[in-house]
Design a protein around this nucleic acid. Sequence first.
DNA 1: CACCTTCCCTAGTGATCGTTACAGAAAGGG
DNA 2: CCCTTTCTGTAACGATCACTAGGGAAGGTG
Lengths: 201, 201
Amino acid sequence: MVTKQRGRPRSFDREEALEQAMLLFWAHGYDATSIADLTRAMGIGAPSLYAAFGDKRTLFDEVVDHHRARYGEFMARAMEEEPTARRAIERILREAAAAYTDPARPRGCLVITAATNCAPGSAEVEERLRGLRNTNIRAFQAMIEADVAAGVLPAGTGPRRLAQFTGAVIQGMSQQARDGATRAELEAVAEAAMLAWPQEA
Amino acid sequence: MVTKQRGRPRSFDREEALEQAMLLFWAHGYDATSIADLTRAMGIGAPSLYAAFGDKRTLFDEVVDHHRARYGEFMARAMEEEPTARRAIERILREAAAAYTDPARPRGCLVITAATNCAPGSAEVEERLRGLRNTNIRAFQAMIEADVAAGVLPAGTGPRRLAQFTGAVIQGMSQQARDGATRAELEAVAEAAMLAWPQEA
DNA sequence: CACCTTCCCTAGTGATCGTTACAGAAAGGG
DNA sequence: CCCTTTCTGTAACGATCACTAGGGAAGGTG
């Protein structure tokens, strides 16, 4: 049932405004981005923002969803498409090196960096991103465990250890990107990290 | 020349107050820690804080110095005391695993995490910590280059790459510690990272 | 004792925080 | 046309931000 649109129509593109909000949260983080910063970048007034997106936390939640759908799904795709854990991680690290240094976007990863300095009142935001990060690492672990069970990776591999190591490298790459590392440098870091991975059978 | 102390003496221990300020900045970061938070934790009024430490930025600068002298010097000591780059990094990673999960202190490293989400007005604080991080990596690189020149590490090592990889792992370990990783888990991550290092001659 | 220096406490500065009340503007439905 | 509905802009809300003026308190010095 399509309800006909009534009343005065919105004068801005909601998707475009969400994109601008994402860029700001991505660059400066949740707490350090003010409503005034957001309305300025989105080109709308505060009441329009609140009418379209709810409060700041709700907007940030939607921004995180938007980011994951648009810039974070390369990880899920690699884990789906690549035949082995090693190949998937190799591809994820290589693509992360490019993504984290893309000159068209803020550096690093929003999920990794946007809520690391949070006031006590924003603890829930911090907790959500923390959960997303740990979920990713558990996905790595499950993939590695499957390969160990299938005999693709050697028995003494230690899936938990290898998954956490990989997560640490990715998070470190995000920080390095913010600290000025180039794409080529991050690709070299990724290459180095793969030396710690056991060879496949 | 010792100038005699005149006037009413300070009623609090400056070192202890600085320590409390450090713990707060360490846990929540620069922007997310307010003067009110600080005065509450330090047990003093705002004018006493300003008289003893200057403004917020100056206090943070001193907090960073204090942190580096007290909790960050294990890196410099390892680089001084260990005979090779590999041994030094091995020790640094092992000690970082313990330091970043010490239950008596905030998790992770202040230099790595305290200024990642900064408002545009706090860009200088962000830049200072960024500089400290990159200086550490360059110190790793110099150490590795020396070992390559001395023939301790193989010729094709790539000191820049190995130093950045090591820095990324340390920064990732700090994030993981904040995300709930245990000391044993971080030690396993450190062990995995060393697998990427070339063996010494 | 009085004096001088320095510190602490109360209270407040203007600015900015996230958020909203309210009134006018712009659309569709009658 | 008027009416209803929804959005937009102005302007403000109380709370908190970093920071400080001013008066009284607490020490050493004469």
